[in-house]
Design a protein around this nucleic acid. Structure first.
Lengths: 214, 214, 214, 214
DNA sequence: GATGAATGAGAATTCATTCAT
DNA sequence: TATGAATGAATTCTCATTCAT
C-alpha cells in the first residue's frame, strides 16, 4: 500500500531468508488489512476478507495474528509507533507553550495528511467511529496528559485542568482530522494554525477568568 | 430515550394479556439493545444477544427492526431527537457568543450526564469508537455548522472559519464527554465552563491574530 | 385476474352475505395464488407471498386453505374442472378417429391459449417443470386412457397400445403448449392440426407395421 | 452420473485419511443429492437433508456448491453430459429418417432405463414436475431442433414444421419415460418402437396432407 | 512454515401457523 | 369470521479456526 511512513514491521535485525519471508508475510497481511478496514470498516471486515486480499493461505494468517482484533491493534500500534515518538520529541523540545501546542497539532495533522490510508483504515467505520482506546493509543493520550501537566508545571502552559485540556486537544485533533479526510478538506497547515490559536487563546482566557474569580 | 427508570417490564408468564402493545414491544427491544450495546459494544453485539435480553421470541425482533444496524440507528436517532431540539433552541435564543457556546456545551454535557446509559450504548465500542456519522447525527453537526455561521454573521461570534470551529466544538464535546463517563469523571458544570472558556478565548485570539497579520 | 374461463369457486347455491364473503375471499386468494405462482414458480412462492398479494390478513388464509400445496391443488383442480369436461364431451361425441384426436388437441390448445395465466401459474417453474400428476390431473390422463381404449374398441382408432398412445398425446400436448407460451409462439389452430396429423398418421403406421410383421 | 454402484463410501471414523480428495467429496455430495431429490423431490429437499445424507460437516457442502439449486444443476448437467453426446452422435450418423428418429428414442429410453435413479432424482417432484428447462437441457432441445432442421434439409425427414416436430419428439420421449418408471412399466425397446413408428407415420402423413391441400 | 479443505458452532432470517382479540 | 402480532422451529450460510499434508 501507500504507507511509506508507517513502520509496518519492526523486526529486530533478523537476517536470512526465513526472517525475510516472515517479515514479508506479516507486512503483506498488514497491508491487506489496512486496505480491507478502509474499505469495509472494522466490523464488517472479516479475517477471510483480509486473507483473500492476500496471496497467502488462510492458515498462514494464524502464524502471524490470532484474530482480526490483533491485526487491527498491530495496525494501530504501528501507526502509533510512528506518530507518538514524533509527538513526544516535538513536545519535549518545546521551549514555549506555542511550540508545545503547535508542534503537537502540526505533527499530527501532517501525519494524517501523509497517511490518509492508515488513518482511514483505523478510523473509518460506517456506523460507529473508532474505539475510544484507539485515539488514546494513537495520540498517546496518557503521554500527552503527562506532557501537558509537565508543561504547566514548567510554566510553558497556563495553569488549567490538564485532563480537560488533554481531552480538548485530542478531540479537536481527531475531529478536524476527519474534516481533512473529505475531498477538498482543509490542509494540515491551516488546521494546525487554527487549532493552535484556539488552544492558546482558550487557555489564556481560562487563567484570566480564574484570576478574576479567584 | 432516557429509559433507565423503566424496568424491562418482563411480564412473568402472563400470556393472554395482549396488553403487550406494539409500542411496548418496540420499547422492550430498544431497552434490551441499549443494555447489550453498552455491555458488549456495537460490533460484538448480535441480534441474538438483544433478543435474549428480552422475553420475546426471536422472530418477533424482525417484526420491529430489520437488523442490528436498524436498532442501533433507532437508538441513535431517539437520542438525537431528544438532544438536538434542545441544542437548537438554546442556540437560537442566544443573544451573545457566550450564551451560544455555553448553552451548547451545557445542554450537551447535562444530557450526557443524565443519559449515561444511552450515551454509553451508542458510543461504547471495544475496539473502534462509535461510527463516524453517529456524532454528527447526535450532535447535529450540520445544524451546528449553520448555526455557527449564522452566529458569526450576526456578530455573536468572531469571524473565524466555521468549519474548523464546528469541528472543534464537536471534538471537544465528545472527547470531554468520554472523560465524564469514567468513575469520578468531571461533572457537567465544570466541563461546560472549561469548554466554553476555551472556545471563547480561542476565538477571540483567532481574530486578534487575524487582525495583527491582516 | 384474467381467468374468465376457469371456475375458481364452485360453491353450491349458497346465498346470503356470509356465503358471498366466503366465496369472495376464496376467490381472492386463488387469484393471488395464480399470480404469485406464475411470477415466482411454485417452489419459490410462499404462503406469505400469496397473502401479501391480497388485502386479507395472514390468519384468514387458513380459513380457506391448509397450505400452499392446497391452494395449488385447488388452482389445478379448478383448471381441470373447466377443461376436463370439455375434453370428455368432445371425445364422447366423436364419431371418427379424426374427431376424437383433433377434438382433444383443439380443445386443449384453445384452452391453453385462452388461459395463458393459469397455465403459466400451474406449469411454470424455474428449475423443474410441473409435477407429473399435475398434467395427469389436468389433462385427465386416466380419463383419456379409458377413452382411448374405448375408441380403439369402437374402431375409431387403430389397435395400438393405449398406454403409449395416451402418453404420446399428453406429452405432445404439453410440450407443444409450452412452445405456445413463448412470445410469437404458434397458435392453437396450427398446433392442433400438426398434432392431429401426427397422431393419426402415426397410429395408422403402427397398425400397418403390426400387420406387416404379424 | 450413473452411480448406483458406488456406495456412499462412509468411512467410519477414519479421520486422518486425507484420501478424502476433493473429487471424492464432490461425488459424495452429488450422490447424496441424487438420493434426496429422488426421495423428497426438489422442492421438499433442503441442503440440510443432503448434508445429513453425508458424513460431511454442513460447512463442507458450501465448499463445493453454493446452493441446493447448484447441486441440482450439477446433477442435471452431469446427466446431460452423458446423454447428449450419445444422442448427437446417433443422429449425425443417421442415414435415414428411421435411423434418426429411432436412434434418438432408443438412446434416450435406454438411458432412462439404465439410469432410473438419476432420472428420478431430476424429474421427480411431488407437486410440480421438473423445472421446465430441465428437459430441454437434458434432451438438448436446441441441438435436437437444429438436427431436425438439418435432417429435413438433407431429405432424411419430410418437410414438416421443425419446432412442432422437436416438441413432439421431446414430449413423447419424456412422457413415455415417465410410464417406464412405474413398476411393470414398458421396456425401452417397445417404447422406442412405438415412438419411432408414431413419428415416422405422423410425419409422412403431415407431408401427404400438405401435398393434398397444397 | 505454508497450505487450504474440513469443521461445526452459531448468526441471521424466514415462514407456516397459532391464537387472543 | 377476520385480524395480525407472536411464535420458534427450521434453514441457509458464514466464518474463525484447526490440522493433516
Amino acid at each position: 500500500m501507500n504507507a511509506p511512513l508507517i513502520a509496518t514491521d519492526i523486526l529486530p535485525a533478523s537476517r536470512g531468508r526465513r526472517a525475510h519471508t516472515k517479515a514479508h508475510n506479516r507486512r503483506v497481511i498488514l497491508d491487506a488489512a489496512r486496505q480491507v478496514f478502509a474499505e469495509l470498516g472494522y466490523d464488517q471486515a472479516t479475517v477471510r476478507d483480509i486473507v483473500r486480499a492476500t496471496s497467502l493461505a488462510s492458515g498462514t494468517f494464524y502464524n502471524y495474528f490470532k484474530s482480526k482484533e490483533e491485526v487491527f491493534e498491530a495496525l494501530r500500534d504501528a501507526t502509533a509507533a510512528t506518530l507518538r515518538p514524533q509527538l513526544r520529541e516535538q513536545r519535549h523540545q518545546a521551549v514555549s507553550g506555542k511550540e508545545f501546542i503547535e508542534g503537537t497539532f502540526r505533527t499530527f495533522f501532517s501525519f494524517v495528511a501523509a497517511n490518509r490510508a492508515d488513518f482511514d483504515a483505523i478510523m473509518r467505520n460506517d456506523l460507529v467511529p473508532a474505539r475510544v482506546n484507539t485515539w488514546e493509543i494513537i495520540a498517546g493520550f496518557d503521554e500527552l496528559h503527562s506532557d501537558v501537566k509537565s508543561a504547566i508545571d514548567r510554566g510553558l502552559l497556563p495553569k488549567v485542568d490538564a485532563v480537560f485540556l488533554t481531552a480538548a486537544i485530542v478531540g479537536i485533533a481527531f475531529q478536524i482530522a476527519e474534516t481533512m479526510q473529505k475531498p477538498d478538506g482543509p490542509d494540515a497547515d491551516s488546521a494546525s494554525r487554527f487549532a493552535t490559536a484556539l488552544i492558546l487563546g482558550g487557555t489564556s482566557n481560562l487563567t484570566a477568568q480564574a484570576k478574576a474569580s479567584g
